[in-house]
Computed example of a mutant assay.
Amino acid sequence: MSPRLLLPALLLTLVGCAAQPPASVHTTNPASSTLQGDATRPAQAKWLRTELYFSVGLIDGGPGSVSPARWREFLDKEVTSRFPDGFTAFDAYGQWRDHGAAQPERLATKVIVVLHENNATNNANIEAIRLAYKRITGDLSVLRLSQPADVSF
């Protein structure tokens, strides 16, 4: 190609690249936003908000506590693999008093919130996460709270 044609071709290529929207979920132009949301997530679906409560050990630490690295490994292997579109995890304080115990256990707690369609596959995935954590830690329970959710993206 001649040098005289190379520069205009290069400029057209650069302008074409600049005109492409960024591959992101964020917008730089709020006026372009709509209330339609994400068309791949149907509004007519029956949605649930499921919260899972995990003890990561006594509030003061000690034997049997789940380390931050181990918790992250659990999230990566057991939760992200089953809900790759996303979830929220946060720290909490929990108390649990077993039947007949004089005092409650004060527990460092992790909570995972998953918004998901109410179907057999997602229900099985939630139960698999609970079972995996009980197997890993030897805990007797992982509290589950599921309730209908009105979801919009």
Rank of each mutant, 00 (worst) to 15 (best):
P84L: 11
D98V: 09
G100L: 08
A108V: 11
S55Q: 03
Q95R: 06
I112V: 04
T28E: 10
L75S: 05
S32P: 05
V66Q: 03
P68L: 04
V111C: 00
P42D: 02
R82V: 00
V111G: 00
T50M: 07
K110G: 00
A101I: 12
L14I: 11
A101F: 13
L12T: 10
L107D: 03
L52P: 00
L35N: 15
S65W: 08
T28M: 13
S55H: 04
E73W: 01
F83G: 04
L12C: 12
D98A: 14
T40Q: 08
I59E: 10
A69R: 10
F54K: 00
W47T: 11
P42K: 04
F87N: 09
C17W: 12
H116Y: 06
L52D: 05
R41Y: 10
Q20S: 15
A102L: 13
Y93D: 13
S55D: 04
Q20T: 14
Q36V: 11
I59P: 04
L75F: 03
D38Q: 08
F74K: 00
S33A: 15
K46M: 13
V79Q: 01
L10A: 06
K77N: 08
T80C: 06
A31K: 14
A39K: 10
P84W: 06
P22S: 15
E51N: 05
F83R: 02
L48I: 05
A108R: 06
L11N: 02
A19I: 12
R70A: 15
T34M: 13
S65N: 06
L12F: 15
R97K: 11
G61K: 08
A92N: 05
V79M: 02
I59Y: 07
V25S: 09
G57K: 05
A45I: 11
R106P: 07
V15C: 12
P104A: 06
T13N: 07
G86H: 00
R72S: 03
T40A: 10
W71D: 03
H99F: 03
T13M: 08
T109N: 00
T80K: 02
H116C: 10
A102G: 13
A108T: 12
L75A: 04
G57E: 05
Y93N: 14
A45S: 13
H26A: 06
K77I: 06
G62E: 05
P68K: 01
V113Q: 03
T27L: 10
V15F: 14
Y93W: 11
L48N: 09
G86K: 00
F54E: 01
K110L: 03
T109I: 02
L115V: 14
